[in-house]
Simulated assay, not measured.
Amino acid sequence: MRTMALIATFALTSTAAAAATCGNDASGFNSWKQQFAQEATAAGIGQRGLAALANTSYAQRTINADRNQISFRYSLDEFMRIRGADTIVAQGRRKIANNPTFYANLEARYGVPASVIVAIHGMETAFGNFMGDSNVLSAITTLAYDCRRSDFFTPHALAALQLVDQGSISANTIGAMHGELGHTQFLPANVIRYGVDGDGNGVVDLTNQTDALYSTANFLRQKGWQPGQGYQEGERNYAVIQQWNAAGVYQKAIAIMAARIAG
């Protein structure tokens, strides 16, 4: 209940208090952090999270990547080739074949086909082989500060600070360029909303494959996945795949690869 209350607080913070002033380069970042610390305090963030915020730095690589996302402008065929669709499909089939009980249990619990989860896993991190090389807190706070998409990333920045408070991540946690975490690249607020302790050890850790895949299936189910319904374009569950990533070419690729993995 406290988690849900904090999420609601995150959504209201910018309107309930004066929002920190965004910027378009590094020059105002330190001033923004001081203002944002007041927002974070109002949202219930504790001293551990506030100390982590104070130690963040402007992530120029993240800004460069955010303003130059050219892969989503490719045609579907180009995108599939560049992202290695054939390799993802082949490796995805092997993963399911090598651990059928795990994937059967996952599918039975959430009603999401294992092939869809595996396609996402392969697309996001090549099955965990590359989960990022960026400081999560610096990346996510830089995006919250940047005027381009401040409204979208501010709740995620607050959520990341909450995860620090909880001990789920640290000031030094490494993830993807936009602050995503783990095997399937969850943004911080989605870790809080949809994260599942899949292996039952009492910790939601998306660098753990079991937790990550259970969390991914939970995300899709909570977004409206209908068990037994199709997921290609024009079918009922395709709209749920669209909730995973906003890029049309990405959505199509996931659906196609999942169908190929399923055989």
Rank of each mutant, 00 (worst) to 15 (best):
V203Q: 13
S150P: 06
D25G: 10
L206D: 06
G228D: 10
P227K: 12
N24D: 14
G167E: 02
R93H: 05
Q69D: 13
F127V: 11
S31G: 12
T210C: 12
N30S: 15
D25Y: 04
G198W: 08
F153C: 02
A253G: 09
G111S: 01
A171C: 05
L50Y: 00
I7N: 01
G175R: 05
T21C: 08
K252Q: 14
A85T: 05
F72W: 15
A42V: 07
A97I: 02
F130K: 03
A104T: 15
G167F: 01
A52W: 00
Q209F: 08
S27D: 11
M80A: 14
I169D: 01
A5S: 13
A11V: 08
R48H: 12
L53H: 00
L50H: 00
G228W: 09
A18T: 15
D25L: 05
A17Y: 14
S71V: 15
Q222V: 02
T142E: 00
I82D: 01
N64G: 07
T87K: 15
A51Y: 01
T41W: 02
Y145I: 04
A65V: 08
A5D: 15
N208G: 06
A11R: 14
S57P: 05
I96K: 06
T210F: 10
A258K: 02
H156Y: 12
Q229P: 09
N135P: 10
I70C: 04
N105S: 12
A139I: 10
R236Y: 12
Y145N: 04
D86I: 00
K33A: 07
A5I: 14
G92W: 06
Q209P: 13
R236S: 13
L106N: 04
R2F: 13
G92C: 06
R260N: 14
P227H: 12
G49Y: 00
